Amino acid sequence: MRTPHVVVVMGVAGTGKTTIGPLLAARLGVPYAEGDDFHPPANIAKMSAGTPLDDADRWPWLDAIGGWAHGRAGLGGVVSSSALKRSYRDRLRAAAPGIVFVHLTGDRALIEDRMAHRQGHFMPTALLDSQFATLQPLEPDEPGVTVDVSGSPDEITERAVAALAALPGTAR
């Protein structure tokens, strides 16, 4: 399966965006961009210190992701971004109208366990509560799919590919 759309792999910290994103991109035959790489150093420092980002912190980050997505319009790509609020997703869609979201979801205990065992990431488990408090799941009028994160990365990726293939206008 291939898609000319840019797919944003979204969800709270610890759902596997950085793991599933590259696997999904490989399956779709498109480039992958790590959303965390678009954060300015001040955002990384703030999160590393255990302080949640506010909207003012997120706008430049979302604009940078939106710029990348805009540049991939018609070519396809996969990028990770928490995209927790509808307003964040609206901002991304304004930059690149063809964006489709893959919302990774799962049991909070599973996500927390995965966060606790990952190494080398700046986001502490202590911020998971703020992530869930901020999360506004995809609404019916938003182009995208919801994919459960239980199982192996390959299983999750297969569910994402199948769900995307079922969306009108994404498979070719």
Rank of each mutant, 00 (worst) to 15 (best):
A33I: 00
A171H: 12
E158T: 14
D57S: 05
L135C: 01
M1P: 15
H39W: 01
R108D: 13
Q136C: 02
Y88M: 13
R2V: 13
A94Q: 13
M10N: 07
T134C: 04
K85A: 14
L92M: 11
A162N: 13
L28H: 12
G74R: 10
P60K: 00
G77N: 11
T146D: 01
G120F: 01
T3K: 05
P4A: 15
D36E: 08
E112Q: 15
G144F: 09
R27N: 11
A116L: 13
R108P: 06
H117C: 03
Q136N: 03
L164K: 07
T157N: 05
I99M: 11
L167W: 10
A45Y: 04
F122Q: 00
V147F: 09
S152T: 15
V7Y: 06
I99N: 07
G169M: 05
D90W: 08
A26L: 10
R86V: 14
E112R: 15
A73L: 14
T15V: 15
A116F: 00
S150F: 09
G29T: 09
G21C: 09
W61L: 04
S80V: 07
A69G: 08
S152G: 10
W68L: 06
A165R: 13
A126E: 06
L135E: 05
V6Y: 06
S130F: 01
Y32M: 12
D154A: 15
G50E: 03
A64H: 10
S87K: 13
K17R: 09
M115P: 02
H121K: 02
T170W: 14
N43Y: 06
I65T: 00
H121A: 04
L104N: 07
G76V: 11
A171E: 13
M47N: 03
T15L: 06
I20Y: 08
G66R: 07
G14E: 02
S152W: 11
V147N: 07
P40F: 08
R72F: 00
F132A: 03
I20V: 15
L24G: 12
I111T: 05
